[in-house]
Design a protein around this nucleic acid. Structure first.
Lengths: 155, 155
DNA sequence: CTCATCTCAGCAAGACTGAGATGT
DNA sequence: CACATCTCAGTCTTGCTGAGATGA
């Protein structure tokens, strides 16, 4: 059945840039599956988290905070508003803007998603000990910071 | 200019599954850019590596070895054949098959790509010491192995 | 006039699916 | 007949771009 399912070439199996992609795929699969089971998506969590931490904001600000594209912000706010997790209201002081604010149901949903995502992280890092997890996350953080500047052309 | 370029929410900044995605994006950007400068793509390297390590193979086998979809194998072999890096010839013992083999120019190109990718790995892991790199890659490898089984539905 | 904001329509790349032609 | 292979066409998703409408 798995006659030719054999190993990938060793060059590929050990290449760090490729290993990172393999883990990212697993992480995304775990996260997407867990969020979908709660009728949510990744962008929902990002927007709810930004609103909870920074308070009500325009859609443009939410895009800058979360790195989500302006077009995708529109769709995501639509989905969250349908579910009554955020409210969209015109800014009285600048009528170009929508002020998006989190509802009590949205805050509650955010805490549910926090719990779900904590479980996913635990499953993702399952083979590592507590100390190894600490090191691994430290390394990830330093890599992310190092490459942060070069990440996006922005325009 | 960067008035609202502020920090992402702390929930997002510290989430391991998200950090991994951020690094994967940086890695992909570095790899794609370096390979493109050598008129190559990721799939080129994967196929050349598989042919070098396992010898001539049918396109179906190459797909199973590398995890590349059958449709994408066709296009990639076309590109490599155009560049004279592989040869496609009918299998005399099973005329459904194309036997794909690497040319001397292909082996030489593979070594060039090896060198290019080694430089990319070095840039990718730049902020980590030699010992930290060893640990980091060890952690990645263990995570990849742990999640390997659950990775692909296959059908 | 210029700039920012919100929105929609659509593009481009990557991963994948369906189906036909060929051959075992 | 069932099955494997190669190929092409096309779908779907994600991230992004362009441009129009509104308003500061």
């Amino acid at each position: 059945m798995e006659s030719t399912e054999g190993q990938a070439p060793s060059r590929l199996r050990t290449l760090p840039s490729r290993l990172i992609n393999v883990i990212a795929l697993s992480a995304n699969r775990l996260v997407d599956r867990a969020l979908a089971a709660a009728d949510s998506r990744r962008y929902h969590y990002a927007l709810l988290a930004a609103l909870e931490e920074f308070g009500a904001a325009s859609q443009a600000d939410l895009g800058r905070r979360t790195g989500i594209d302006r077009s995708d912000i529109v769709a995501t706010v639509n989905e969250l508003a349908e579910r009554m997790l955020v409210e969209r209201s015109p800014d009285p002081s600048d009528r170009r803007r929508n002020i998006v604010s989190i509802t009590p149901a949205g805050s509650q949903r955010l805490r549910t998603l926090d719990r779900i995502l904590a479980e996913v992280q635990d499953e993702l890092l399952a083979p590592l000990s507590a100390e190894e997890r600490r090191q691994f996350v430290d390394h990830l953080t330093r890599l992310a910071e190092y490459h942060a500047g070069t990440a996006r052309p922005r325009h």
